[in-house]
Design a protein around this nucleic acid. Structure first.
Lengths: 260, 260
DNA sequence: CAGTGGTCTAGACCACGGA
DNA sequence: CCGTGGTCTAGACCACTGA
């Protein structure tokens, strides 16, 4: 009754990883369950501990398990994603609830939202941002606002907003960390920029080292990067925000018309 | 002139990884450049080879480098992303060019596109798909069409389309692998379903084991998953497609109105 | 062929968590 | 305190690449 019938060409580390993966998929190792310890696996398969460890590291890279120092290795529980939609920018939603869609989503999950503007500075825009704003990257200056988004004090997103100085002027957008009622898009409206269209460019990648520590991300979890551009009635791009979101906690949900 | 002034609490593997990462960022190790060999690094830092190897595996997990057996470890070149937009579904684009947006994007990059319908079967819908189609997951039957998308014979995307049997009927959608001129949405129009709105739910995750082999993905690269729903004038969801795309080759680009 | 990464061994010590 | 993962060593052999 040996599963591998003598001709298993997989190296032992793969075999252990495959077995564990199968157990996770079948539900035998349920979400949150503890895997056998490295030493236990090594003994069971007759390998060195490092070999069992290598197997676990494969599963870590696939985002299937998380190791906790001193406790063990656990099947990574799949938390439901927050679903951020284009309605993030809806004026109606803004005025109805007085809450940002982020806060609504977090609250819906029974967690406590928090947002924090960490800095407001003047800076040169990154090349891609300058391009979206129609600015010259080498000469232009923008206001840079860095916002952090939390659920239960756990950071889940960062958003860096770039506003041309010509747009922000001496308004609160250019200097204040807190922007008052109706949040940032109300302030743009004060200045005569009313959002009518948005462009969102989405990509996925592994986090930079700073991001994975800043967002305290477990290994094997990618980020979603969204480069957002706000456009007004006169087709002016008046603001660009780069969102970086933990991929295990966030998702996007767009519904839109198909333009002929 | 020692950089670490005696009090470097980082383990050697981290230190090697940090140094290499810095070299990559600074451009000292350019895109595509070869890293020092594992043995070379071990010698240079006075560690065992495994320790240098561990450092490289950290960078692999971050998607910064790729190892090639027998050749060396290289800085992963960042290929430009394909930018898939909502105009994928535009009738105008379809009729103007006769090409699918996928083919246009790949051609734009100087590569050769290929698409292939691998199978057409009848199946039970997955729960999330059934939900989007307004079907009962346990009783309903759908047509399942599996499509693979290639650039220069390299697979870059998979799309699995689900169509309720009531919609597909006995049309080519229900059985033919090739759908003829104007592609799939033209066939839906033949049946009276004209796409007017779409919903796209986007997430990012590490590939399943089958996906990473099927799409021959290097380690440290996530996938983008898009659950797409097509909606017609009468608000009927008539088709759902789940796209799984290599995150290092694909991006999404939406422009849409903000609905009040 | 020499040089590279891929895998493995059998130990060792440390740091953390929980009883 | 013990059991866990985190890190490291100093070897070894294999498989692949390219001259």
């Amino acid at each position: 009754m040996d599963e591998q019938s003598g001709t298993d060409r997989r190296p032992p580390s793969r075999r252990i990883a495959d077995d564990l993966r199968a157990s996770i998929r079948s539900g035998e190792l349920a979400s949150g369950a503890k895997l056998p310890s490295e030493r236990e696996l090594a003994g069971r398969y007759g390998t060195a501990r490092n070999t069992a460890r290598e197997a676990i590291s494969i599963l870590q890279g696939e985002g299937l398990v998380v190791a906790q120092h001193g406790r063990g290795v656990f099947v990574r529980p799949r938390t439901p994603l927050m679903r951020l939609g284009a309605n993030r920018y809806s004026r109606q939603l803004r005025s109805e609830t007085g809450l940002s869609p982020f806060r609504i989503e977090v609250t819906k999950q029974g967690r406590t939202p928090k947002t924090e503007c960490r800095s407001v500075t003047r800076d040169k825009p990154p090349a891609d941002v300058a391009d979206r704003l129609g600015l010259d990257a080498s000469t232009a200056t923008v206001i840079r606002r860095e916002n952090w988004y939390y659920a239960d004090d756990e950071p889940v997103q960062v958003g860096v907003t770039y506003i041309p100085v010509d747009v922000a002027g001496e308004s609160p957008l250019a200097s204040e960390r807190t922007l008052g009622k109706g949040s940032i898009y109300a302030r743009f409206e004060d200045l005569g920029y009313r959002i009518t269209r948005i462009r969102e460019e989405i990509s996925a990648r592994m986090p930079y080292h700073e991001e994975s520590t800043g967002l305290s991300m477990p290994p094997g979890v990618p980020v979603i990067e969204v480069l957002h551009t706000s456009i007004d009635e006169q087709h002016r791009a008046f603001e660009v925000t780069r969102f970086v979101m933990r991929g295990d906690l966030n998702g996007l949900d767009y519904e839109m018309p198909v333009e002929d």
